[in-house]
Design a protein around this nucleic acid. Structure first.
Length: 651
RNA sequence: GCUGGCGUAGCUCAGCAGGUAGAGCACUCGAUUCGUAAUCGAGCGGUCGCGGGUUCGACUCCCGCCGCCAGCUCCA
């Protein structure tokens, strides 16, 4: 029991300890264990994160935060950001500090400085940071009343900090952190000393607006990262380098899949090999959707503005649309398929028996994206979605959402074996319709997720103008997250288009529309896959599935026979008849990420066999052409991610 | 769109105090007929992103535009 003058804390394992009131957090941590004391970055008392130098004046649930905790990393990198700011101030005393928070992979600090920082400057700043770390300056926290806080920042000549203080509410504590000669307005929390930072690296510098507002001054944002050990830092840098190496904008043209040209910013030119991948994905989508009860349609690309006014796009999406004028009439190029589908729904009377009606379209969409936002295939102006609109009765919504979840699982889980997380995006500021309806729609999405037993995160105000949505973020082989699939509820469009169906009661009822895409934009999806697989697509997606390599010109005839056998089973095979040595052809095929290389010479031609080599597994030995064709066809038909040719491939 | 950087052969890049461009790979041809990641030789290829200006002369300096890259903002 807690005595007066004592506090009781509860550790994560449920054990309880008492300490004198006012004990330092660091002393409690040291008392728990020396190992933990070394790893500790900060502590958490109930829901409040405190520095190790703070004193505890109440008890509660007590957790020691280390590098393993997201909150621990956050504190650690937040302090690293302060070290950065301190280094900048030492080297450039006239720099004005803005904000410097930790972010997922590191931290940044926005500063206002007349001199433009170069990579060399970053190195100098980094060297200064190391000095500050070596100085092992203890951090100290203090609070000031508003007037004194303003005076302090006035003295130190920090206009951005003054603005921040002025914007703080009256109920908010104004706290500062000091380390050596450096003082920063900051909410915290932090590590206890600059010496706690083990490995730092400044990464780059880029422009960023003060408070993200393009009408405000442009500041210089210095990005950096910090890790618990030099080794982890090196691993991070390697991953970054690997991501650069896998960049789809580099791999795509290199593998002859697509290219971009100045004459069409934001639009890919799909080469034959890229088009094969594109078409394979559409084929997969068609197969699954037809199994899931979808019907495919095709709606016009260019529609009068009358249509876009009805749909609400004119009001909410016009700046993202390409407009065409002809004979005084303005047309909009479709950025979304939904209005077209609404018109197809409306083209005849619909019965409740028709619902849910699932309308799919691989329509080409054009969106005018601002030039600075384009990013290869991942952010294009022209793309195709595996898009569909589901027209459902209100009582079918949850089941339809579950039906969508199953399809997402099928593609991401079963076919690509990628993990994903789900966001529920709620009503944005620029919304259409009745807030009460929004609330209901949001709760329907939540309850569907709960029924499916899926965990999710709520993304406030991230919904579309016409309804709340679920966004699915895939995790690729480098741990990066990408948004692809989306499921969006829409009560607005049916109303605006006056969509109705005849119910069992013989009266007219309003359907609900669900917009959904699974792969999302095929362009983006291919870009992500390209980076995920580093160009080495699974065999079913590979533009060239097998390359037959005759060891000399004499065996080209046999090589062609092998190719024809493969082609006869619908496999994509070709012969490398160039006048080169085997080693060279192998190298070429490896670089092109061709999954199977089939070497043929006198022995193979004689026996009706091929010597099989897989791009990752190397030499798989010699096997009869029949067996190879069967196994390869099985691998492709099952859309296997792994090679299934060879001894253990026969399962 | 905004801030900064960049734009030389199909690709990767060199070059220049301003004196009208060079390498490797790719491609073509020739020789070689070859057994699992680079055979040798020759040839072809550039109004140095586009347009203006300064200059006797501009790939090089200046201005404008286009595109790309890193961010900001926005998003499938």
């Amino acid at each position: 029991m807690e005595e007066p003058g004592e506090i009781e804390i509860i550790l994560p394992d449920g054990s309880r300890r008492t300490y004198p009131r006012g004990v330092r957090a660091a002393d409690v941590v040291r008392d728990i264990g020396p190992r933990l004391a070394r790893d500790a970055i900060a502590v958490k008392l109930d829901d409040e994160i405190l520095e190790l130098f703070r004193t505890l004046d109440r008890g509660g649930r007590f957790v020691v935060l280390t590098w393993k905790d997201e909150e621990g990393r956050y504190c650690y990198r937040h302090t690293a950001a302060h070290v950065l700011a301190q280094a900048v101030k030492r080297l450039y005393p006239d720099a004005d500090l803005a904000i410097g928070p930790p972010i997922d992979d590191g931290f940044y600090y926005d500063i206002d400085l007349d001199k433009r920082l170069t990579p060399d400057d970053l190195e100098a700043i980094e060297a200064e940071m190391r000095r500050i770390i070596a100085e092992d300056l203890p951090l100290e926290r203090f609070e000031l009343p508003r007037e004194e806080a303003l005076r302090l920042m006035e003295e130190r000549g920090e206009p951005y900090k003054i603005e921040l203080i002025n914007d703080l509410g009256d109920d908010q504590v104004i706290s500062f952190y000091r380390q050596g000669e450096f003082v920063d307005l900051c909410r915290g929390p932090h590590a206890a000393s600059t010496g706690r930072i083990k490995a730092v690296k400044l990464l780059n510098v880029a422009g960023a607006y003060w408070r993200g507002d393009e009408n405000r001054p442009m500041l210089q944002r210095i990005y950096g990262t910090a890790f618990e050990s030099e080794q982890e830092l090196q691993e991070f840098l390697w991953r970054r380098e690997e991501a650069r190496r896998r960049d789809h904008r580099r791999l795509g043209p290199e593998l002859d899949l697509f290219h971009f040209d100045d004459v069409a910013p934001g639009y890919a030119f799909w080469h034959p090999k890229g088009t094969i991948i594109y078409n394979e994905l559409v084929r997969l989508s068609r197969e699954l959707q037809s199994r899931y009860g979808y019907q495919e349609v095709r709606a016009p690309d260019i529609l009068k503005t009358d249509l876009w006014r009805i749909s609400g796009h004119w009001e909410h999406y016009r700046e993202n649309m390409f407009l065409i004028e002809d004979e005084g009439t303005v047309y909009g190029v479709k950025p979304m398929n939904c209005p077209g589908h609404a018109l197809i729904f409306k083209a005849r009377t619909r019965s409740y028996r028709d619902l849910p009606l699932r309308m799919a379209e691989y329509g080409h969409l054009n969106r005018f994206e601002r030039s600075g936002t384009l990013h290869g295939l991942l952010r294009a102006r022209g793309f195709v979605q595996d898009d569909a609109h589901l027209f459902v009765r209100e009582d079918q919504i949850e089941d339809e959402i579950l039906h969508c979840l199953a399809l997402v699982d099928e593609i991401y889980g079963r076919i690509f074996e990628m993990d994903y997380s789900i966001d529920l995006s709620t009503r944005p500021d620029d919304f259409m319709g009745d807030p009460a309806l929004w609330d209901r729609a949001e709760s329907m999405l939540a309850s569907a997720l709960e029924r499916a037993g899926r965990s999710y995160r709520v993304a406030e105000k991230e919904g579309n103008f016409y309804g709340p949505k679920l966004d699915f973020h895939m995790v690729d082989s480098l741990g990066r997250r990408w948004q692809c699939a989306t499921v969006q509820l829409d009560f607005q469009m049916p109303q605006r288009f006056d969509l109705v169906y005849t119910g069992e009661d013989g009266r007219e009822h309003r359907p609900v529309m669900i917009h959904r895409a699974i792969m999302g934009s095929l362009e983006r999806f291919i870009g992500i896959l390209l980076e995920h697989f580093a160009g080495a697509f699974p065999t079913w997606l590979s533009p060239v599935q097998a390359r037959v390599i005759p060891v000399a010109a004499d065996y080209a005839g046999y090589a062609r026979q092998v190719r024809d056998r493969l082609a006869g089973r619908g496999l994509r095979a070709e012969v490398d008849e160039r006048n080169e040595k085997v080693g060279w052809k192998i190298r070429q095929a490896q670089l092109e990420k061709v999954p199977y290389m089939l070497v043929v010479g006198a022995r193979e031609a004689e026996a009706g066999t091929v010597a099989v080599r897989h791009r990752d597994q190397g030499d798989l030995g010699v096997m009869p052409v029949d067996a190879l064709v069967d196994q390869l066809a099985a691998e492709v038909e099952s859309r296997s991610l792994r090679p299934r040719v060879g001894a253990e491939g026969a399962d």
